[in-house]
């Protein structure tokens, strides 16, 4: 069965960048179930399409990443979430992880770093 992935980021460039890496041969087969531009969209898509894995930006309009992680931990506790953020301080990462995130990737990231982080998330 394919791994179901949801990409959440308010930047289309970043969304596409992550989506492009799905084809990397080191990763298991991935079914991209959705792209969301803010936390509210992310929550709606997550509820209807039940992704196994989510990449999550933190600074977004409507509902920010931290709040979204908190809600997702309640409504979709099985999903593994990786924060992808330019906020590089440890306090932010710690808050995200204690709210339910399972991994952290700093922006800007190389393609290699992204694949390694996704592999780690999916292992």
């Amino acid at each position: 069965m394919k791994a179901r992935l949801l990409i959440v980021d308010d930047s289309m460039v970043i969304r596409n960048l992550i989506a492009r890496q799905m084809l990397d041969e080191r990763l298991p087969p991935i079914d991209l179930v959705g792209l969301a531009g803010d936390g509210e969209q992310a929550l709606a898509i997550a509820l209807s399409r039940k992704p196994d894995f989510i990449t999550m930006d933190l600074t977004m309009p409507n509902m920010d990443g931290e709040a979204c992680i908190e809600r997702l931990a309640e409504v979709l506790p099985g999903a593994r979430i990786m924060v992808v953020s330019a906020l590089s301080d440890k306090a932010t990462a710690l808050r995200a992880v204690s709210k339910g995130a399972h991994g952290f990737l700093h922006k800007p990231f190389s393609e290699e770093q992204l694949v390694v982080a996704l592999l780690e998330l999916m292992s």
Binding site: K90, A91, L94, R95, V97, H102, E120
Partner: peptide, 24 residues
């Protein structure tokens, strides 16, 4: 942050490798 971090270490949900990076 330190309190949060030690809480995470004790709750065992989070992978140790990730926690090593988050040590404040």
């Amino acid at each position: 942050s330190a309190r949060q971090y030690i809480g995470l270490l004790l709750n065992e949900r989070v992978k140790p490798a990730l926690l090593a990076d988050l040590n404040p």
